[in-house]
């Protein structure tokens, strides 16, 4: 087995006495698509920043594979209007590429028409594509995307995730992304990490989806979102009292979680009854 591209060990960080990362250990293997999901304020962006070396930690360490090339697409790109910047020039931001290469990569992400536009004039979706194109030009070993589908409409989102998967296939780079779009992401990812200050659960999308902690974090919204795609599955596995009990045992120290679980437990059978009736 080859060494992971990036590995975080026991990452712990708190801001003003409040824990943001609580003993987080995580690693990304070559060529895998890993998606971080979790509620707002769960520290997903912070975790990514720590892994990238943008943020230091109170304890723990980050090991990067030597010579690792990262392509980073941040959550937002706020280029001041006072700084004139065409897309053509922006693609050369951290290193130089020929014009042909730049046009090719824009073609690939479906944004060739903005080559000569000012960055500030782009729509949300175009900005995301251009940022992705720029990151790709680096031929990265690891592509890091912080909510890549932000400001992109729903059809665009599905297309964007498809594109990310295609890129991984073609370039063989690993992808680490943060996402809110649960059901869209699930289909296009190898490993899901459900994160809320600590790694709640991780694994294949199928496994994570059935994990009680995942359900307690995302509640019915998530169950619904997935229900669209896996309706029968949900009902057979997830509404069993055993799973809920099992979780209460494993994660007894998270009081709020187990509290939520009982709710899920009591209300779920009612829903089933309703369906049956």
């Amino acid at each position: 087995m080859t060494a992971p591209l990036i590995e975080g060990q026991g990452l712990t960080l708190s801001f003003g006495g409040e824990a943001v990362l609580d003993d987080v250990s995580l690693s990304i293997a070559k060529g895998e698509i890993m998606t971080l999901i979790g509620p707002n304020g769960a520290g997903k962006s912070t975790l990514v920043k720590v892994l990238l070396g943008l943020q230091s930690v109170n304890a723990g360490r980050v090991i990067r594979k030597p010579g690792l090339r990262v392509g980073y697409v941040p959550q937002k790109l706020a280029i001041d209007r006072v700084l004139p910047m065409t897309v053509k020039r922006f693609l050369n931001l951290t290193h130089h590429c020929s014009l042909a290469e730049r046009i090719e990569v824009l073609d690939h992400v479906g944004a060739r028409h903005v080559l000569n536009s000012q960055i500030g004039d782009l729509s949300g979706g175009e900005t995301q594509r251009v940022m992705l194109a720029r990151a790709l030009l680096r031929k990265p070993d690891l592509l890091v995307l912080d909510e890549p589908a932000q400001g992109v409409d729903v059809t665009g989102q599905a297309e964007l995730y498809r594109l990310i998967e295609t890129i991984r296939k073609e370039q063989g780079c690993a992808v680490l992304m943060i996402s809110h779009d649960l059901h869209l992401v699930m289909a296009k990812t190898d490993r899901v990490v459900c994160f809320n200050r600590h790694v709640c659960c991780s694994g294949l999308p199928e496994t994570v989806r059935q994990h009680p902690e995942y359900r307690s974090l995302f509640g019915y919204r998530a169950a619904d979102a997935i229900g669209i795609y896996h309706h029968e599955h949900d009902h057979e596995h997830d509404i069993s009292g055993q799973v809920v009990d099992g979780c209460g045992h494993d994660h007894g120290h998270h009081h709020d979680h187990s509290h939520n679980h009982t709710h899920a437990h009591t209300s779920a059978p009612r829903a089933k009854e309703h369906l049956n009736g």
């Binding site: 943008l54 990262v70 392509g71 980073y72 941040p74 790109l77 700084l83 922006f90 931001l93 890091v144």
Partner: peptide, 10 residues
Amino acid sequence: VSPEIALAEG
């Protein structure tokens, strides 16, 4: 343009 991109990319 972006301290975050710059830092992340070395």
